[in-house]
């Protein structure tokens, strides 16, 4: 059975108590941890895996296309 706002309030006087402050949706949306400084190794890894994914995607597409024709 769907509860309306009044029933919800009756059932739970202090909903904030049931949630951690960090869980409140407005706090979640407004919380920004900020950009993390990537190490040179991590940057290389990011690029390597990106190139790998794009290259392999092209290869698989070509292969599947060939199989179908």
């Amino acid at each position: 059975m769907k509860m309306d706002h009044f029933q919800l309030n009756q059932r739970l006087s202090w909903p904030a108590d049931a949630l951690e402050p960090e869980q409140l949706s407005e706090n979640v949306q407004q919380r920004h941890y900020g950009k993390k400084q990537l190490s040179p190794g991590a940057k290389i890894l990011f690029w390597a895996l990106r190139v790998y994914a794009l290259f392999m995607l092209a290869l698989v597409t070509y292969q599947a296309w060939n199989n179908l024709h």
């Binding site: 909903p15 049931a18 869980q23």
Partner: peptide, 9 residues
């Protein structure tokens, strides 16, 4: 808000 209230329940 309503989202938090439902989650709180």
């Amino acid at each position: 808000n309503i989202e938090d209230r439902k989650r709180a329940i």
